[in-house]
Amino acid sequence: MSDSPFSDSFESPSAPQSVADDASLSAVEIRLAQRLASLRSERGWSLDVLAEQTGISRATLARLERGQSSPTTVQLGRLCTAYGLPMSHLIAEAEVEPPQLLRHDEQQVWVDAALGFERRMISPPSSGMKAELIEGYLQPGADIRYDAPPVAGLEQHIWVREGVLEYSLDDQLFRLQAGDCLRFRLYGRSRFVCPAAQPVRYHIVICRP
Rank of each mutant, 00 (worst) to 15 (best):
Y167C: 09
S57A: 14
S123C: 13
A33F: 05
A15M: 01
T81E: 10
E29L: 06
E106Q: 13
E93C: 13
L133H: 11
Y146D: 05
A114I: 13
A131S: 13
D112E: 08
D22I: 05
S9K: 11
V193F: 14
P16C: 02
P99A: 10
Y137C: 09
I144P: 11
D105C: 11
E52F: 04
L36P: 06
P195I: 00
L79P: 00
L101K: 13
L76S: 00
I158G: 11
R183E: 07
V28P: 03
L25V: 09
G141Q: 06
E95S: 09
S70W: 02
D105H: 15
F174E: 03
E52V: 03
A92L: 12
L182P: 03
L138C: 11
G153S: 09
I30K: 02
R58N: 13
L76Q: 02
Q75G: 02
V200K: 12
V49L: 07
F174Q: 09
V164W: 11
E132T: 10
R145I: 03
P209E: 04
C194D: 00
Y137A: 12
I122Q: 10
Y187P: 03
A82Q: 03
R208Y: 06
Q139V: 09
P195G: 05
Y146R: 07
D180L: 06
E106A: 10
P16E: 01
L90V: 15
G67E: 00
S4R: 11
S123P: 04
A197S: 12
E11S: 10
R183M: 09
A37Y: 07
P150E: 12
A197C: 08
R58C: 07
R208I: 01
R183P: 04
Y167N: 07
P124T: 15
E118N: 10
L138N: 13
Y187N: 08
L186S: 03
Q107P: 01
I158N: 11
P140T: 03
S123Q: 08
A20F: 05
Q156E: 15
L64P: 13
A62P: 14
R58M: 09
V200F: 06
V164M: 07
E162W: 13
P13G: 00
D112I: 08
A142K: 06
C80Y: 00
L102Q: 08
I206M: 09
A37F: 08
T72S: 04
A82M: 05
W45Y: 06
F6W: 09
R119N: 10
D48K: 08
T54R: 13
S26D: 03
A142L: 02
A196M: 05
E29A: 10
Y137L: 14
L154M: 11
V193E: 07
S57M: 14
L102I: 14
D171L: 14
S14V: 06
T60H: 15
D112Y: 05
L182D: 04
P86T: 06
A27I: 01
R66L: 08
D21R: 11
L154C: 12
S88Q: 15
W45C: 00
L64M: 13
A23E: 00
Q108F: 12
Y187W: 10
L25F: 00
L101G: 05
I158R: 14
V96K: 12
A37I: 03
H104D: 14
S70T: 01
C194N: 07
R201C: 07
R201V: 06
